[in-house]
Simulated scan of single mutants.
Amino acid sequence: MAESLRLFADRGYAATSVAEIEAAAGLSPGAGGLYRHFRSKEEVLSAAIREHIERTRQQVSDVLDQAVQYEGRPLEVRLRMTCQAGLAKMREEQDLIRVLFRDLDQFPNLVAEMREGIVNPLYDGIATWLSQQPEFADADEDWAAIASILGGAVVNYWLANESMYEPPTRIDEKRFVAGWARLGLGLVHLDRAPSSS
């Protein structure tokens, strides 16, 4: 599955033959070894996506469970760690993301599985994490919307860097992470008084 996903990311789904997948996976090319495990090339892609979905679910659960051990650190440090984890996840999923943007419009059911199995759980995880920070305990915020903005910034930064071969306005990752954390810190200081309108 990993080799097929790498080939789909590099060459495109349609341009990758079953024989090429077999060769990359250490099977005899053209001998039908892939069909002993999968009925079709599409089934290989589906299985690869489902494997990534399961791994992402476990990672989100693990990160939320482990977050307790970092509660004693300053919020800015915790925010930086969260941003860095998001960028690391994007790097980890780079082949899957490339396949998504290149080929998955052919497979709307797989797009839906990715959205519900990977993308939404990641944003939900950010929202849950934010809402659990002690500094935000009294905040009545729309954490899902805030997670969408902060998470979207991470996704956009990574995608721009990947597709244009350098980060937006040449802001390196260290500066991006610092800026992202500063935005998160701003949530602590929001004026919570109701508007006078």
Score class of each variant (00 low, 15 high):
E76A: 15
I49P: 02
S131F: 00
P134E: 08
A137S: 14
L130F: 00
D142F: 11
L150Q: 01
R50F: 01
K89M: 08
E43Q: 14
T82W: 01
D103W: 10
R80S: 10
R73C: 09
R57M: 06
D95H: 14
G125H: 02
Q84K: 11
E93L: 14
A145H: 10
V68E: 15
N120H: 11
R57G: 06
V60E: 11
V119F: 14
R80D: 07
L122I: 13
S61F: 04
D140K: 10
N120V: 12
D62E: 14
V60F: 05
Q94P: 01
Q94D: 09
L100P: 00
L45W: 01
A137D: 08
A153P: 00
P74D: 12
T56G: 01
R115K: 13
G72D: 13
G117M: 12
A67D: 07
D142K: 05
D138H: 08
G86D: 05
E113T: 03
A112M: 11
I49S: 02
K89S: 09
E141W: 06
V111F: 09
M114H: 05
Q66T: 08
I146L: 11
H52F: 02
E113Y: 15
E51T: 09
V44W: 00
L45I: 07
R91H: 14
L104Q: 04
P108G: 05
D62R: 13
Q59V: 11
I146S: 02
Q59R: 15
W129D: 07
K89N: 04
I146D: 01
T56H: 12
L100H: 08
Q132F: 00
V99H: 04
